[in-house]
Design a protein around this nucleic acid. Sequence first.
DNA 1: CTGAAAGCGCTTACAG
DNA 2: CTGAAAGCGCTTACAG
Lengths: 352, 352
Amino acid sequence: MPDEDGVVPKVGIRDVARAAGVSVTTVSHVLNETPHTRTSEATRDRVRSVARDLGYTPNRLARGLRTRASDMIGLLTEEIATTPHAGRIILGAQEEASRHNLTLAIINSHLDAGADARRADARALIERQVDGIIYATVFHHEVSVPRELRAVPAVLIGALDRQGVVPAVLPDEASGAADLVALLVDAGHRRIAFADSSIEVPATQGRLVGYLRGLEQAGIPRDDRLITAGVSEAGGGYTTSLELLDRVDRPTAIFCYNDRMAMGAYRAAQELGLRIPDDVSIVGFDDQAPIAASVHPALTTVALPHYEMGAWAVATLTRLIQSSSTSWYRSTHPTLLPCPVVIRESVAQNNQ
Amino acid sequence: MPDEDGVVPKVGIRDVARAAGVSVTTVSHVLNETPHTRTSEATRDRVRSVARDLGYTPNRLARGLRTRASDMIGLLTEEIATTPHAGRIILGAQEEASRHNLTLAIINSHLDAGADARRADARALIERQVDGIIYATVFHHEVSVPRELRAVPAVLIGALDRQGVVPAVLPDEASGAADLVALLVDAGHRRIAFADSSIEVPATQGRLVGYLRGLEQAGIPRDDRLITAGVSEAGGGYTTSLELLDRVDRPTAIFCYNDRMAMGAYRAAQELGLRIPDDVSIVGFDDQAPIAASVHPALTTVALPHYEMGAWAVATLTRLIQSSSTSWYRSTHPTLLPCPVVIRESVAQNNQ
DNA sequence: CTGAAAGCGCTTACAG
DNA sequence: CTGAAAGCGCTTACAG
């Protein structure tokens, strides 16, 4: 309880021990429920109630120093907090951490900060004695993992380790894209365009691959005239869709690389007097929170498993930490997490 | 360097001391650049180079235990990581923390988790010995701050302390709204509608107040027929704008409560064959990342100072921590941070 | 069933 | 200018 200054005198384990008339050893055993330690029920009750009455709060710093486990996970993000939806990676990691009684310490590195800054950030986390580090990037390019990450168990989100030794998790963009195509095919579409992004990120590969796989699985021959590319913003989707929809044999559906491009496609369709989805179906990718649900008609798209990747990373890390094996890493195969199709209103049956 | 097992033997301050042929005291002084401590230049150089060669990484846990300062700030968010843009609060806090050589530990509480869960979360942070806590909420309702927050310096983001004792920072929504109205007035508009949100959050108050203040400053009489309310989603903006724009004396500009409602207003205008901004100007609020820039024409709106609030919180907290005064809190006035108008293309000169 | 004591890796008066 | 030693608040063999 606060004294008249409002200062709360910190009560430590020895205060509890003294007040309960036992040793600190016993207090520690009781409060931590140390296995293989038999303490009389009476003593345990007394210790617990004294601890509560005194408002004892264990000092996890001291505990960590002694046990050599800080129970903290470091999350190193690369420009990710700026990205929409990235908050869900943090959220997934945080909630999984809470489930394991771990705390998440985060540091954000700027993309353009360079390798040195990133290494310094990793070091800062290691100085905190984090038990493991999650390194999350925006695009899943291959990264050379800062070598400080070798000092501690680590996992990657959205990136591949060039040395192929650090476990990684990625969205299964190809399957998501293929599923989306299947949805279109099921609705009777066969002339499905792919409005790709012209910028070179690995995600492009995945989505294009999935698009092609989807066609193949439906027995629809690839038609390169239906594959276009533009800036991965609304503007790019507009330009590219305008051209696509102005053809005599225009596609009955457009699969846009992302939701922003889909917004542009909406506008193109509108200007051409085509109704969505009756005259043309449009789908996107990303399930970007405010866009996909706010456009009219609401956009059918594919969601990225941000939350799940964050949770996966912490779960995997705790396993690595517990195994405490010298060789943390077995599999070099990245884990692919499903990208679920989110059905809204921008796809209609095709009757042509 | 790793031995053959890949295990990196932890090097501590005593290893450095031994290798440099000095005491740990000296190593500590040199590495921390302790003031009022004169160590020969030669010794300092030797210590530093030995530390570097050995790859010495100070253990901040041990340091914290000794100095009673963990150099960690706890960020307690309330459902915030789910909110678009909330990442920027975390980012602002994180970057400001880095500047002070502090690390951010985050925990997210669910809105519906209740006061007990929130208190447990605060306690978890305090067990980590955080030097201060930031409590960030989505809507700035008044909150009763968990009493564990009294044990440590704390600041509020986006909320007011019911007891009026914890420093708080809020977006100056009223001024932002007034500025937006001023922009419209400068463009010659006088019949400016306000498509308010029908849900009751304090932000509504601020924006409405700002709208009215803006009119007043321009000498435009308040016209309640121009103030409507709808669901604060695209659908609400659509319905409400449709009605507004269908009047004979329709407004020349619509100020939407948020960007999502503005998207609905866009659709209403389109359906009525009104061009934006030539026939009607539309503005929003929030500057929601993917929406405002992706709609056509790009939306003029007001940005929320998320990043700045995060940075403010950490900066203020460090000041409170350093002052180490028993009575941390002086001012009960919340700090209001400006909401800058972001001019894009949805406002045109009115010539009626 | 319970406790005395060492030690985790640092910092910091204090002494020389 | 430099160092020996105490101590931050815990946990954990070990002994009884």
